[in-house]
Design a protein around this nucleic acid. Structure first.
Lengths: 215, 215
DNA sequence: AAATATTTCAAACAACTGTTTGAAACACTT
DNA sequence: AAGTGTTTCAAACAGTTGTTTGAAATATTT
């Protein structure tokens, strides 16, 4: 019944092409015919190996999420010996790298971004498997910087501000390349972005330890 | 030939339901049958009044963009007499309001968010009509705060950091409600978000006037 | 009121979708 | 080599999609 352990050649080929096409087109626009053609497999192969289209999507999601999680764990490049400020810089660099660089597989970040704004029924898997652990780690770092607990509201707001900055360059890429056709085209500027976001955010949190009373 | 000026009853009804359904489902998943049913019109009405599905989408986009632009211009709530810091606060509040509150039409922000991450062929219209003017205004405010020119690279980076924070709460709403089921559910906290992002960003730019030399 | 133009409608069309089918090809064990 | 289970394949199926059609209904002009 359960074919999870079966790793036939066509099964793997389908998962590869499926991941790529799902990321490019989205779940509904991607067709099993395109996927099978690119995999060099018959049209019926998807239903035979994965039950149906949803089963294929789910298998792809779980498999490559695990793969990415192993090669790029949330605490990638972060050591216990670092000061919180350095941890934050490492976190941001890792975050940006995972999103924009040629991480394996190169299309996983795009598929994740797609689920971010337009979640399918499989979104919870990504939240629990990838997003929550990553966000939790950031919350811990921010909490250490602010001298508060990880579940403090201000910690969460600041964490969101940091994540929001990082995501902007991936999610809003279509906007950026139109607003500034040349300036932010290449992805080879992760270091500059890392420095900017780290600097911006550390300053942003600097005086936030005290209550923000205004008016 | 050109039916732009024709404002028959069914034509308007179709544009209304189309905008709503396009925003909910996206261009490709939205069906003309659903649109026409909700508009109380025949299936052939779309092709008769707008040529084809693309023509309908284009008409909806242009029409409601103009409407939103008139009721909520980019400089909404901003006066020349304000200090740059107050302008930034007004800009952020206006931005958040436009995205999360019940602006008319209430689905326009969602349609815009959809084009943001998954642009269709009509995206350039939104960039030039809505996004670029809005971003330009922000760049002017940030430039005034930093004491640089609007096309300075740091000004652009900081502007992106600000926009990124604002967009996070709209684009990543599916994530937020899963990570913190109760805490950030309601949209009735625009004031708190405005204060947080303004405070965070003003601090983030505070010392950025001087060159960011590190290491 | 007649004539003309515009709009609506039910029905059908052609293309595409995910899925199923049953036989053929293959792999492996006995 | 025969037998068994697994995998591939071309073909077809049932459903949905955007679009077209030609006649009927309505509105406008003469």
């Amino acid at each position: 019944m359960d074919k999870k352990k079966n790793a036939s050649r066509t099964r793997l080929a389908i998962m590869e092409s499926a991941g790529k096409i799902f990321a490019e087109e989205g779940f509904s626009k991607a067709t099993v015919r395109d996927i099978c053609r690119e995999a060099g497999a018959n049209i019926a192969a998807v239903n035979y190996h994965f039950g149906d289209k949803k089963g294929l999507y789910l298998s792809v999601l779980k498999h490559y999420q695990e793969m990415v999680f192993q090669t790029y764990p949330p605490d990638f490049g972060i050591t216990a010996a670092q000061k919180p400020e350095e941890k934050l810089r490492a976190y941001i660099r890792s975050f940006l790298t995972r999103m924009m660089d040629d991480v394996h597989p190169p299309w996983f970040a795009r598929l994740l971004a797609r689920e971010f704004t337009e979640p399918t029924w499989a979104f919870d898997i990504l939240v629990e498997g990838s997003i929550r652990p990553s966000f939790q780690l950031l919350a811990d770092i921010v909490a250490a910087i602010l001298g508060k607990k990880p579940d403090d509201r201000r910690v969460r707001l600041c964490s969101m501000s940091i994540v929001g900055q990082c995501l902007y360059f991936r999610h809003s890429n279509p906007v950026i390349i139109r607003l500034f056709p040349r300036e932010f085209s290449d992805a080879g500027q992760i270091e500059e972005l890392t420095e900017h976001i780290t600097f911006f955010s550390l300053n942003g949190m600097a005086k936030a330890k005290t209550k923000n009373k205004r008016r």
